[in-house]
Design a binder for these strands. Structure first.
Length: 471
DNA sequence: TTTTGAGTTGTTCGA
DNA sequence: GTCGAACAACTCAAA
């Protein structure tokens, strides 16, 4: 009798190595690999444009690694999985869990439907180091503060599982599909803005592994301090690979542990810990993407200002470090972590625009757009989240630029019209003497915009706004 | 139940 | 230039 056929439903685990569900499927029989592009319900945060672009290339890479046998379909899994099972004589389905609220609920419904249809269904943990429902305080409730969550709840509880190798034997079932099935999903944009993103990324599992190895060799040794400087190549840039599961957090965790880089390893582990914390919060507080965790923020006096929002989105605020960040996002699909805080603080505090506007723009533009990370991050910046930034922490984009981009390499790369300004005025051209401006070829209001707000008075306005919701 | 210590990433001002 | 305090009060975690 032939080996049984197991369906492996790929979701956010687009890799062969350290893939628990796939590993087990390969051990048990022949594997029918499937990807389904689903219709996301309203409010479910359908993928943004940058994510769709990334997914297109990730699927092509994965399909190539599976000898073209990845079955790529769009539609409803409740219908597709049983049909594929019938067509290929399969009685068993595997997947690795996803943690978006709508998907969690939907998956438990699916599980029952598939069982009713006579399928054996198994789900695995392929994308988190600790399951959100397993990390709880002694009283059984979830942590809301990062330090005890990570230190006590995670580190003292269990060492993350060691990564699994690629399946030794991976026998595939199903026909060769070719790349047209992926093209038919229509994930690429009609206007080809994606071309500028391409040189920045090597999408897919091999690229993710390269990226990890390079980070461990070059970035990790100075990570603890270096990660704060956007002009230096010390951050990992693994976030999109982790989001799509081209790399597992276990692989990243243990690679950094093996490097024995002391405080640098600890710092990188803590960053992975923040990713865990975000998923933990989203699991226990599924309203995180749209509702202030601190409900007194429900009466915060946000401003509607479409013009300022548009300038922020386009990188035309007239505040150089903010514009550099927003243009990095647009040009590469990514933004350095420190600059995310600077542009976030500027939108929410200096412009008093609702954090959900920033969240939506990031969701659309980031190649690492992740519901858990993104919503936790914006609530943190706005001060309304769990363990959030205090209201008086308002970043000064001039000091931040001077401190973290001291030679201006980052700001000059993305705001080239200011490149010839001396360091002294690079972050505050509105204060530069006329002579300095003309020597640098800068004409305020023409070659570079005037600031959209005055930093000092908008800071005071923000403090006043926060004062209205005290107590 | 009560108490105690602590909480990612800052800025400004005045001595 | 450097340093410490103020900026608030609240909630969380754990004993």
């Amino acid at each position: 009798m032939a080996d049984p056929v197991i369906i492996h439903w790929f979701r956010q685990d687009l890799r062969l190595a350290d893939n628990p569900a796939l590993h087990e499927a390969a051990r048990l029989g022949r594997v029918l690999p499937v990807y389904i592009l689903e219709e996301v319900p309203d409010g479910g945060w359908a993928m943004g444009a940058a994510s769709r672009w990334w997914l297109h290339h990730a699927l092509r890479s994965l399909a190539a690694r599976l000898d073209g046998r990845l079955q790529v379909v769009s539609g409803d899994p409740v219908e597709i999985i049983p049909r594929l099972a019938r067509e290929h004589g399969s009685g068993r389905v595997h997947w690795n869990r996803c943690y978006d609220p709508w998907r969690l609920g939907r998956d438990s419904v699916l599980k029952n439907r598939f069982k009713d249809a006579g399928l054996d269904v198994r789900s695995y943990n392929g994308s988190l180091l600790w399951e959100p429902w397993e990390v709880l305080k002694k009283d059984g409730t979830p942590y809301k503060v990062f330090t005890p969550y990570f230190g006590k709840g995670c580190l003292q509880a269990a060492v993350p599982r060691r990564p699994l190798p690629c399946p030794e034997r991976l026998e595939l079932a199903g026909p060769v599909e070719g790349e047209r099935a992926i093209d038919r999903l229509g994930l690429r944009p009609k206007i080809r803005w994606d071309l500028q993103l391409e040189p920045h990324w090597a999408i897919g599992e091999p690229g993710a592994q390269d990226r990890l190895e390079r980070f461990i060799a070059e970035g990790l040794p100075h990570y603890a301090q270096g990660r704060d400087f956007p002009g230096r190549p010390q951050v990992s840039r693994l976030s999109p690979h982790l989001h799509f599961g081209e790399l597992s957090p276990n692989q990243a965790w243990h690679a950094a542990a093996a490097a024995r880089a002391g405080e640098n390893t600890a710092r990188f582990h803590a960053e992975l810990g923040w990713r865990e914390f975000a998923h933990h919060l989203l699991f226990h507080f599924p309203e995180l993407p749209h509702t202030n965790l601190d409900r007194k923020f429900d009466r915060f006096p946000w401003r509607d200002d479409d013009e300022a929002l548009r300038r922020w989105q386009r990188g035309q605020t007239g505040i150089p470090i903010v514009d550099a960040g927003m243009r990095e996002l647009w040009q590469t699909g990514y933004m350095h972590n420190r600059i995310r805080m600077v542009v976030g603080s500027f939108l929410v505090k200096n412009l008093l625009i609702h954090w959900r506007q920033g969240e939506a723009w990031f969701h659309d533009c980031l190649v690492d757009a992740d519901l858990a990370n993104n919503s936790m991050g914006w609530q943190w910046v706005a001060g309304c989240g769990a363990d959030a930034a205090p209201y008086f922490r308002i970043f000064n984009p001039v000091s931040q630029g001077r401190k973290f981009d001291p030679q201006g390499a980052y700001t000059r790369r993305y705001v080239p019209e200011l490149a010839r300004l001396p360091d002294e005025y690079l972050f505050n051209p509105w204060e530069a003497p006329q002579e300095v401006l003309s020597n640098a070829g800068v004409v305020p209001g023409e070659t570079y915009p005037h600031p959209v707000v005055d930093l000092k008075s908008s800071r005071e306005r923000a403090l006043a706004a926060y004062a209205t919701i005290k107590g």
